[in-house]
Design a protein around this nucleic acid. Structure first.
Lengths: 212, 212
DNA sequence: GGATTTGATGAAGGATTCTTCAGGTTTGGA
DNA sequence: TCCAAACCTGAAGAATCCTTCATCAAATCC
């Protein structure tokens, strides 16, 4: 998974008939399932194919290699989370800074928690698949969404700058990762969610020098 | 690297003679070097041994398996960082909250940055070796150090609670990871350091309800 | 100086996994 | 009905890599 290997991550063939579309979906699902039930170490292409109810050859008809299968799963998950954050940002415009921050953070936490098991499983393989680069890319998208939202805040003159927003997102993501990987209880998550909101709110407020 | 495999992570034999102590040290160094020059994918026990100037058999005389070699390297790095944070905490007692926070955060950032390359290389293999569990354990140690420091703050009645401190440390570590993995420039790091200090300061202040 | 313990060697065993491809099956249209 | 394209199969090739162990060298002790 060196950087240049990423070029070989694109899917190999696009489904044409309905049955192959089903196959691809099954492989995608199976990947997560194998990850959850067997762990990252015993995640083999053969096992994924078997779980999906197809043969290995079929898997390799749609993905050029094992990494691309995992990459697709990771990408799907991160996109899903990012989309929810973006939706929350769009829905929280024209409100006070702390309100929009709260809604955004909660959307993120909830998106991650919704399938905590998948999140944790994917953290485990992220590094093997160029996860950091993907996270960086998707993180930029989220940053823009947050930035756009903050520009409409009703109680600040100018929004925090780019770096501050990136910092907040990185901190938010990192804190969430710690929590998920430590296998915290549901009760602890409720408290942690509040804390994370507070953390982001206080930072956003502090990073906003001038108020109206 | 499932949980039960961790039992096999302890070193196999302790060096008795001077030459073997040298060997162990060489293996440790070589591990990092191979990781940096060849990448995580081409990190093999044979290569590590070769780089260390010994044979594979020697390596297996001190480590029960490949994972334990990496685990030792990760542990060494994290301990080193934690120690610096603890030292900073000890040296920042009896000061205002924001001062101690600043010193602590800066110590952490500087410790990570000192060998940014190693930090990044180890992030890459962390998951393969049970890194999260180790991070959790060492994180607890750091939390206690921070907690003890905060209890001596001159300008607050009671320090933030356990969860808040854990949250801050998780956010701080996560943000740092993001930064390092994104390969930010030195100039950006200087700004990021300030931002991270601000983030932690504002959160600590917010998490402290009652002031004197 | 000889015996014992500690340390080092590295070829070879053993196991696993990724990936391919030649050949068979199903689908959909003409 | 028949054909071409799309799809699927899964045994086998090929490449790695981890780990061991019988054997040799060095160091320490008595």
């Amino acid at each position: 998974m060196t950087a240049d290997a990423v070029v070989a991550f694109e899917p190999r063939k696009t489904p044409v008939q309905a049955r192959s579309a089903v196959t691809v979906e099954a492989i995608s699902e199976a990947t997560i399932q194998v990850l959850l039930t067997h762990g990252a170490d015993r995640l083999t292409t053969t096992r994924i194919a078997h779980r999906a109810g197809v043969s290995v050859g079929t898997l390799y008809q749609y993905y050029p290699n094992k990494q691309s299968v995992l990459f697709a799963a990771l990408e799907h998950h991160l996109n899903s989370v990012a989309k929810k954050v973006e939706t929350a940002c769009a829905g929280a415009c024209h409100k006070p800074l702390s309100d929009m921050t709260k809604e955004m953070v909660e959307a993120f936490v909830d998106a991650k928690m919704e399938r905590a098991d998948i999140s944790v499983a994917l953290y485990r393989v992220s590094a093997d698949v160029g996860g950091p680069a993907l996270i960086k890319r998707i993180g930029q998208r989220s940053r823009k969404a947050v930035e756009a939202m903050l520009r409409t805040a009703t109680d600040i003159a100018s929004p925090p700058d780019k770096l501050a927003i990136e910092m907040m997102l990185a901190a938010m993501g990192g804190a969430m990762r710690s929590l998920l990987e430590s296998g915290a209880s549901a009760a602890m998550f409720r408290q942690a969610r509040e804390q994370l909101v507070l953390l982001c709110q206080s930072y956003m407020a502090a990073a906003t020098s001038k108020r109206l």
